[in-house]
Nucleic acid binder design. Structure first.
Lengths: 333, 333
DNA sequence: TTGTAGGCGTTATCAA
DNA sequence: TTGATAACGCCTACAA
């Protein structure tokens, strides 16, 4: 039989005070006699008392919980360093508080479930690491619950608070680096053109070339996958256009290009420099190790959490906070 | 101002019945007149009613939540495909139920927090993806809360239910594969000898050789890192012992051995076959792509969740469930 | 500084 | 098949 869980009531009677006073001590209200505090704390200790969250939540109308909304597709690529690090940042920032993280997986099959959960008074706020961000289902929620998004939504969801990495700027930095290393015919393998990072990184590439007075190099579309990168690289080579560097919109595509370049008799970085984006784990073990842009994912997660904490405190934080990726120099440039 | 959240009471009055009846409908109790059900459901629809979890939990003494306990160190290597996939499996299995996943990060700084959380009636059960499994802090909890562990604890925590991969068996399968491909002098690079997987995989290697009537090949200790693998490979070569294959206890070490072998003038797989363990992402992009054993992590997560569900239903599931890794054939053998 | 008492939204036990 | 009604454990005016 499970032992009976101690209640406030039990602590009170043991300490010889009322429940109200115990409640005050538990919640750190200062208007309690030091001596009483002492007695009560001892009773708590002895009984091993832990406040019941449900009761507390019911009475106070606050839950002490935060929702972490993840799309199922992200879970599928859970090993995606992006997501993992963001969660790490969130978790770390939250660990210092008393908030609990409720992870909720969004999928086709439970579309309404997420909404119900968020509306059902289960959490005090929500962190959305989802790509469906533009969904109007969220816009209703926005007025009901403090929410912070990872990544700027495609559609300009009004009023949404988001933390994002400046993809344009970061891509430009990557291309600038290639230019600084003497490359002049810089090709790009882009991401899908219906995803923000895909678009923005291509734009950064374009801007960098323009700013340097170079003519735009060849450009081929990938899909953020290894195979997509290989395919794009092949097209690039078949096109016959000259190039001495490739800016790939992510590491996977960059590494997909590696064997294709090699088969074409090109060596990296002598004949062609390659730079990626993401600093994914495999980029380190690639041969040669891939130079890439690392996004401050942990920081992004931490910022999300901090913003949300502020919002739950009643503050109105900035709509959009932009972070910047930084270069990881390895041997592919 | 936030709109007032609809309550059971409101639904009841709108439908012209008592709260009790509404509660019955919400909870799917069948003893309600079809006509009443109809009216009530409509009222729920119109008001957009969602049951308040805290109140429900308080009254029913069940939370509808499950804790997912992760050690901070795991979060640090969150991109660890192991963890990600396990979570994915858990999430998927739980998505079909009404349980919510409460992720809780264990760290030095909040040691007691986890315990308090689990004891505080916050969840109906816990899934532990932690390596501190042997800690006695858990053994107390075991009697208070249904818990399922990922991976068999080193110390035989009594009464703990765990799902694990059979490392001995899986390692043996890997080595059998090498043997089937004609290798006869099979070396191993082991993991740390104070970790279960390290020990067990080495044991599987030994057993496979013994069963095939081969004499044990050279054996060197690594530490599951890239560098450790390289170091061990160097020792192996320097030892002068002949070998035509290496079984590395994980992919990272296998890939760490690659450049060392190459420098020694050995080609893979012609001169020496290499097989890893884990099917980590980088193993695909390695050159040559690494043949490896993939652990059924998603399945493991799903099993954990299912076992826990059973336990929360009052059943007593098996103490230990063992899964088996399967071979991913690539080009390194 | 402390205690009293009402209420938070559900569930569950009885009667009816 | 339904409805009162009493918990559930805690918070929070309000009074003392």
């Amino acid at each position: 039989m499970r032992k009976r869980i101690p209640t406030l009531e039990m602590v009170a009677s043991r300490a010889g005070v009322s429940r109200a006073t115990v409640s005050r001590v538990v919640n750190g209200v200062s208007t309690v006699a030091p001596e009483a505090v002492e007695r009560i704390q001892q009773a708590i200790e002895e009984l091993n008392y832990v406040p019941n969250r449900a009761a507390r939540s019911l009475a106070s109308n606050r839950t002490g919980a935060v929702a972490l909304v993840v799309p199922e597709t992200t879970v599928k690529v859970f090993s995606d360093p992006f997501f993992g690090s963001v969660v790490q940042g969130i978790a770390m920032a939250l660990a210092e508080t008393d908030y609990t993280l409720n992870m909720i997986i969004e999928s086709e099959s439970n579309a309404g479930k997420t909404r119900r959960y968020l509306m059902g008074g289960n959490v005090d706020g929500a962190l959305i690491v989802s790509h469906h961000t533009g969904d109007r289902s969220y816009s209703e929620l926005l007025e009901a619950l403090p929410m912070v998004f990872a990544g700027q939504p495609m559609e300009d969801t009004t009023g949404a608070t988001a933390i994002d990495v400046d993809n344009v700027d970061s891509a430009r930095a990557a291309v600038d680096y290639l230019i600084a290393h003497g490359r002049r015919r810089i090709a790009t393998i882009t991401g899908p053109t219906d995803m923000r990072p895909g678009i923005d990184r291509a734009e950064g590439w374009r801007q960098a070339l323009e700013a340097a007075g170079l003519e735009p190099g060849p450009r081929f579309a990938g899909d953020f996958t290894l195979d997509g990168g290989a395919r794009a690289a092949r097209e690039l080579i078949d096109s016959g256009e000259p190039f001495d560097a490739i800016f790939a919109a992510n590491d996977l595509m960059a590494m997909g290009a590696y064997p294709v370049l090699r088969e074409a008799g090109l060596t990296i970085p002598d004949d062609v420099a390659v730079i990626g984006f993401d600093d994914s784990p495999a980029s380190q073990t690639a041969d040669p190790p891939l130079t890439t842009m690392r996004q401050p994912m942990i920081e992004l997660g931490a910022q999300m959490a901090r913003q949300l904490l502020r919002m739950m405190d009643g503050e109105t934080p900035p709509q959009l906070t932009v972070l910047r990726a930084h270069l990881i120099e390895r041997a592919s440039v």
